[in-house]
Amino acid sequence: MASKPLFIMLASGEHEKIQLAAMIASVAAVSDRPVQVFVTMNAILAFRRGLTAEQRYHGGYFHEQFVTKNVPDAIDLFEQGKMLGEMQMWACSLVLDLNHWDAEKDLVEGLFDGPAGLAKFLADAEEGELITL
């Protein structure tokens, strides 16, 4: 039986929550479970193009250990999930508009499938399970 699709709403800019979202998304995607990720609020700041890990990630008890030890980078995990499984990532159009950002120019190259609104994401999420971080 096919697994229910997994929908992840990532709103927190805290490194621990971004890391957990990346782990859940990538592992689910490579386990034959379709995944959609909606990135909004503070979380979008971590996906800005051209940042170093030090600039990108902040917050959480394990933050320092994530960046100093050999823990997979969250952006790399999202990319692996997309490459090896069925996964789509959407950038919240509200926060893009507020920051005057363009999903294709201002976010990590090749990671997002486009801007999206909350209503469509929530409607799609009725087909599966929704996790909010």
């Binding site: 782990m23 990538s26 592992v27 490579v30 030890k69 050999n70 823990v71 997979p72 995990l77 692996q80 090896l84």
Partner: peptide
């Protein structure tokens, strides 16, 4: 060796692919 979760799993999957 030296990689933390889920690094080894992701490396396995890439190799299996």
């Amino acid at each position: 060796r030296g990689a933390f979760c889920p690094g080894p799993l992701m490396e396995l999957i890439a190799a299996l692919k």
